[in-house]
Amino acid sequence: MFEAANRLIGPVQDGLALGGVVFLRIGAAMAVLPAFGDRMVPARVRLVAALMFTLIVAPALAPVLALGPRPPWLRLLATETIAGLSLGAAVRLFVIVLQTAGSMAAQSTSLAQIFGGANVEPLPAIGHVMVIGGLALAAMTGLHVKIVEYFLLSYDLMPAGVFPFASDLMPWGIARVSQAFALAFTLAAPFLIASMIYNVALGVINKAMPQLMVAFVGAPAITAGALILLALSLPAILELWAAALDRFLANPARPP
């Protein structure tokens, strides 16, 4: 009787141990993941989402993730937490891309002070629209499925129970940050070009007609032009951003 009970309990203990190890990584990543880990999402919802992701990811890792009869829990607690935070922060950079692009666009078009505190994180109106639009687009195009694939691929990039070496993690992180700033500048490029043309034109008009108050004429023009440019360019901006996010989630180890 006791042998039969041990045979039944053994697989259950192995499954719980596997789920616990996977949850350590997913739970840490869930704290900073976009959409699922935003501060506007209640903590209970984030906890349930982390558990659901664990239930999906853990069975797929059962054939390859060997823990043994006595897993080193203290070591796994450290390594999986570090791995989860690193993976979540890498995806969070794509939200920072939209925030940076929106701030650059707003500063260059004199819209930086309009509704600056409307979001949980202080952002100008353009940045708020970009972030909400980007997150909505990512969610509608299957972000939850891509996140599951991302977690599965992460065990090739950062194996369970292995401390990530700084010599490996630092170049990977620096590459992600440099990619984020380059992408943010690319997304904000239409607004920067329009701002440059506007300021050059304003300088020429002021030089030709010093008595004209060009600031009173130019302020409504740049505001209207920025809003029209936002309406025209935002679909292309979000499409470019979503494509970059998909490429990263499909292959996180790929150099930018």
Rank of each mutant, 00 (worst) to 15 (best):
V22P: 04
V22R: 04
V22S: 08
F23I: 02
F23M: 13
F23C: 05
L24D: 07
R25A: 00
R25K: 11
R25W: 01
R25P: 00
R25Y: 03
I26A: 01
G27P: 11
G27T: 02
G27L: 03
A29V: 04
A29N: 01
A31T: 12
A31D: 08
A31M: 06
V32W: 00
L33N: 00
P34D: 05
F36D: 06
F36N: 09
R39A: 15
M40S: 12
V41R: 03
A43M: 13
V45L: 15
R46Y: 10
V48H: 08
V48W: 10
A49P: 01
A49H: 01
A50L: 04
A50Q: 04
L51W: 06
L51Q: 11
L55A: 09
V57H: 01
P59E: 08
P59Y: 07
A60Y: 09
A60I: 10
A60D: 14
L61R: 12
P63R: 13
P63W: 14
V64D: 15
V64Y: 15
L65Y: 04
A66E: 12
A66W: 03
A66N: 06
L67T: 01
G68F: 12
G68R: 08
G68V: 10
R70V: 15
R70T: 15
R70F: 13
R70P: 00
R70W: 14
P71G: 12
L74R: 10
L74S: 10
L74D: 12
R75M: 14
R75G: 14
L77Y: 08
T79Y: 01
T79W: 02
E80T: 02
T81I: 03
T81C: 02
T81A: 14
T81M: 09
I82K: 05
A83C: 13
A83Y: 02
A83D: 09
A83L: 09
L85K: 09
S86M: 13
S86K: 01
L87K: 00
L87A: 11
G88K: 04
G88D: 08
A89S: 14
V91P: 10
R92V: 08
L93T: 06
F94L: 13
F94W: 09
V95M: 07
V95F: 02
I96V: 15
I96Y: 14
I96L: 15
V97N: 05
V97G: 06
L98Y: 06
T100A: 13
T100I: 09
A101M: 09
A101E: 05
G102I: 14
G102H: 10
A105C: 14
A106K: 03
Q107P: 00
Q107F: 03
Q107E: 08
S108F: 03
S108Q: 04
S108V: 01
S108D: 10
T109D: 02
S110V: 07
A112C: 03
